[in-house]
Amino acid sequence: MSKTTRATQVLHKAGVAFTIVAYDYQPDAERIGLQAAEAIGVPPGRVLKTLMAEVDGRPVCAVVPSDREVSMKKLAAAFSGKSAQMMRPADAERLTGYHVGGISPFGQKKRVPTVMEEMAAGEQTVFLNGGQRGLQIQIEPADACRVLDARLAPLVA
C-alpha cells in the first residue's frame, strides 16, 4: 500500500503535522468507519467519516464521527440551504477522484465547501481517511479545518 496519496501530498504542502496509520481494510464491513476505529484501536468518535452530499443541488463535503449519523436537516442548515441528500456513490467517486471507502476530504479532484461536526474540535487529534482504503491520517482538528477551509457546525442527529 502506498502511503503517498493526493491527501498526504496536500497536507505535506500545507506544512501541518500528521501521522499516517495503515490498517487492514475490510470491504465487507457493515460500517467502514467503525471497522477502521476498531482496527486502529481508538474510540469510533475520533475516526471521522467523509460524506459527500448535495445541499440544494450543490456538492458539499461533511466530516462527522464514524459512530454517528448526519442529520440532513442540520447539514442543509450548515450551508444555509433548504434540503440535503447524500450524493450517489458513483458521483462522489467522480467528483473526488477517490473510491468509496477511501474518500478523503483532503486532495479531492474538485474542492467543494466542507463542514466538520463541531464535536470533533473537542478531541486532541482525529483520524480522517488518507485517500485510499485502509489508510487513516491522524491530525489535530484545527489543522484539518484550516487545510480544508472547513467550518465547524452541529451536523449529527
Rank of each mutant, 00 (worst) to 15 (best):
S2E: 14
T5H: 04
T8N: 03
V10F: 13
L11A: 11
H12W: 12
V16Q: 04
V16D: 02
V16I: 08
F18E: 05
F18N: 03
I20E: 12
I20Y: 10
A22D: 15
Q26D: 15
P27F: 02
D28H: 11
D28A: 13
G33W: 01
L34S: 04
L34T: 03
Q35H: 14
A36D: 07
G41A: 03
P44R: 06
G45D: 12
G45N: 09
R46E: 13
R46M: 10
K49G: 08
T50E: 13
V55I: 01
V55Q: 03
D56A: 00
G57Y: 05
R58K: 15
V63T: 09
D67W: 01
K73R: 11
L75W: 11
L75I: 04
L75A: 07
A77D: 02
G81I: 03
K82M: 12
K82L: 14
S83T: 12
Q85R: 12
R88H: 14
P89M: 01
R94D: 14
L95C: 09
T96K: 03
Y98I: 02
H99P: 04
H99N: 07
V100G: 05
V100Y: 09
V100M: 07
S104C: 08
P105E: 05
P105A: 03
Q108I: 13
K109R: 15
R111C: 15
T114L: 07
M116T: 08
G122K: 02
Q124V: 12
T125E: 11
V126M: 07
F127M: 02
G130V: 10
R133W: 06
P141L: 05
R146V: 05
R146K: 13
R146F: 02
V147W: 09
L148Q: 03
D149R: 14
L152A: 06
L152Y: 15
L155V: 00
A157R: 14
A157E: 15
